[in-house]
Amino acid sequence: MSTSQVTVKEETHKGYALTTWELGAGPPLLFLHGAGGAANMFAGEQPAAFLIELAKSFRVIVPEHPGFGVKERPDWLDNIHDMAYFYLDYLKGLDLGGVHVVGQSLGGWIALEMAVRDTSDIASLTVAGAAGLRLKGIKKEDIFLWTRDDFVRHMFRNPEVAKAFAAHEPSPDQLKAMLRNNETLALLAWEPRMYDPNLDKWLHRIDVPTHVIWADDDVVMPRPYGEGITALVKGAKFSVVPKTGHLLHLDEPQAFSQAVQSFIMEQAA
């Protein structure tokens, strides 16, 4: 099977028809997407480059979070904890033994909330540009006040990637998904803004190998957040991907995927 061959599935979990994309072969890896959603990563002729890269070593499973994409938000979804419990149930249902959980931005936050609760189905944890931690006094840009131009300017540090993003004209379905994604992001993260006030008290409970990957120029979740998470999770490793912004996995897909993969391989060795 080619590493970029993708299987799309829709299965009902907790009354919600969850869409998942799967590609690659190897140990299972669950990728939890950020506020941009999952569908965009599979909208082109090829899946997003970082996923193709990961699929060379892993069976990559990418669900689209409840409340994201074109579908209606499920009634039970009120907060980030609902999301974490949903995915813990989902992992239990998959029954794959240990799954490598990788989350970016909002997805990283979900992954942290899962891991403080229950790691019995998690083999390792990788979070990149993760939200969730409260740090006082760090200046952050307000993504909810951004225009599309602001978004392009702030999110990327690879000019080619930024240019391609800015040039993309979304289809009506993509536009609808974007509006839904923003709405659910607001529900989960407007107030308190992008954090769980209690998360820092329990990060020490995480007892699986943990890798914290950060951009070198993230204005949404500046680097002290990455360092803060690393300090609170026992034995966590911190790495930085140079020349990247908050969407580091899109800015430098090879370097990002390399970082994810090498950490997991080191743990297995």
Partner: peptide, 10 residues
């Protein structure tokens, strides 16, 4: 006012 200010998500 800019649109994101007038119409925040949700």
């Amino acid at each position: 006012m800019p649109m994101p200010m007038l119409l925040p998500p949700g």
